[in-house]
C-alpha cells in the first residue's frame, strides 16, 4: 500500500559512469598492468636470460671442443680469441651448472655466454693472476654460489694441453692461525702465502672500483713485485649481494697442482674431479 502522502518519486537516474570515474578506472588498470610488467621483468632477469645464455654457452663449448681437437697436448695452448671460449672451469664443491666454458673478455655480450677472462691478466697456470668475472644471478649465474666456497675448495681449469688445480686461499678469519700441518690433506699448497700476499684472503667483499684485486699481486700496484716472485693465483669476481651490483664478491685461489694432458688418453681427468 502506498500512502497518498508520499510525493511521487522520480525513477532512479540511469547508471552511466561519469568521465572522472572512467579516467580513474583506466589509471588503476594501468597501475596493475605496470605491476605485472615489473614482475615479468624479474622473471626475465632470473630465468629467461638463463635460457638465452644456456644456448650461447653450449655453442661456445662446442666451438672450444672443435678447436681443441686440432691441438696436440704437446703443442702450446693456443692464444685466447676475444669472445671465444679457451678454457673450462670446474668447481666440484658447487653443483650449479659446472663445468663452464670460460671465454676471453669481460664485455656484457661475452659474459652473457659464460664466465669471462679479464683481458691482460695471466692465463691459466701463469705467474700472476688469472682473473675471471661471472654473473651472480641470471644468465645461468655461473658464479651464483661463490659465497658457499670455503678455504681449500678446488677450482680446476682445463686448457687445450693441461689441467690446473687451484684451491681457495684461507679466509680472513682463518689465515692468522693457519697451521699447515693441522690442515686437511686437500689443503696442501693452499696455506697463506705471506709477504706481499698477506692481505690476500680466500673471499672478500669490495667496492666495484677496487680493480687492484685483479692485479698480478692482488692489492699491490703493478710492477712492484718482480715476475719471478709472483705466485700463480686465480681470482673470481661477481656481484654482491645477489640481485644487486652494489659491491663485488672476490674469491682468490692459488695453483696447487698441474697435470699435463696425455695425447692418447683424452679421457684422463685429475683426481680432484674424481678421475
Amino acid at each position: 500500500m502506498v500512502s497518498l502522502d508520499t510525493p511521487p518519486q522520480a525513477p532512479p537516474p540511469e547508471r552511466r559512469p561519469g568521465r572522472p570515474r572512467a579516467v580513474l578506472r583506466g589509471f588503476g588498470e594501468g597501475l596493475i598492468t605496470l605491476g605485472l610488467v615489473v614482475l615479468l621483468f624479474v622473471f626475465y632477469e632470473v630465468q629467461v636470460t638463463s635460457w638465452f645464455s644456456a644456448r650461447q654457452q653450449a655453442d661456445a663449448t662446442q666451438r672450444l671442443r672443435d678447436r681443441w681437437r686440432e691441438v696436440s697436448p704437446e703443442d702450446r695452448a693456443p692464444e685466447p680469441i676475444p669472445g671465444r671460449g679457451f678454457a673450462r672451469l670446474y668447481v666440484p664443491a658447487l653443483d650449479s651448472g659446472f663445468p663452464f666454458t670460460v671465454l676471453e673478455g669481460t664485455d656484457q655480450d661475452t659474459l652473457a655466454a659464460g664466465p669471462g677472462h679479464y683481458t691482460g691478466t695471466a692465463l691459466p697456470g701463469e705467474r700472476g693472476n688469472f682473473a675471471l668475472a661471472g654473473h651472480r644471478s641470471g644468465r645461468m649465474a655461473p658464479f651464483g654460489d661463490l659465497d658457499r666456497l670455503g678455504s681449500c675448495d678446488a677450482m680446476v681449469v682445463e686448457t687445450a694441453t693441461e689441467w690446473y688445480v687451484y684451491r681457495v686461499l684461507p679466509l680472513r678469519g682463518e689465515a692468522a692461525d693457519w697451521a699447515p700441518e693441522a690442515a686437511p690433506e686437500r689443503c696442501a699448497g693452499a696455506a697463506p702465502i705471506g709477504g706481499p700476499y698477506r692481505e690476500v684472503f680466500g673471499r672478500n667483499i669490495v667496492e666495484p672500483q677496487r680493480r687492484e684485486v685483479i692485479h698480478p699481486v692482488p692489492g699491490v700496484s703493478r710492477g712492484t713485485v718482480p715476475e719471478q716472485w709472483r705466485s700463480r693465483l686465480i681470482t673470481l669476481t661477481t656481484c654482491h649481494p645477489r640481485y644487486s651490483a652494489e659491491k663485488r664478491m672476490i674469491v682468490h685461489g692459488v695453483l696447487t697442482k698441474r697435470y699435463p694432458k696425455v695425447a692418447d688418453r683424452p679421457d684422463l681427468r685429475p683426481p680432484e674431479l674424481g678421475g
Binding site: F41, Y44, E45, V48, T106, Q108, L111, G116, Y118, A133, G134, H135, R136, S137, G138, R139, F143, P208, Q209, R210, R211, V213, I214, T237, T238, C239, Y243, S244, A245, R248
Partner: peptide, 17 residues
C-alpha cells in the same frame, strides 16, 4: 623490450670498474 632496456639499468654487471 626487456633486452633493449636492460643495459640501461644499473644492475647485473659483475665486473670491476
Amino acid at each position: 623490450v626487456f633486452p633493449a632496456v636492460e643495459p640501461l639499468l644499473p644492475f647485473g654487471d659483475p665486473t670491476l670498474e
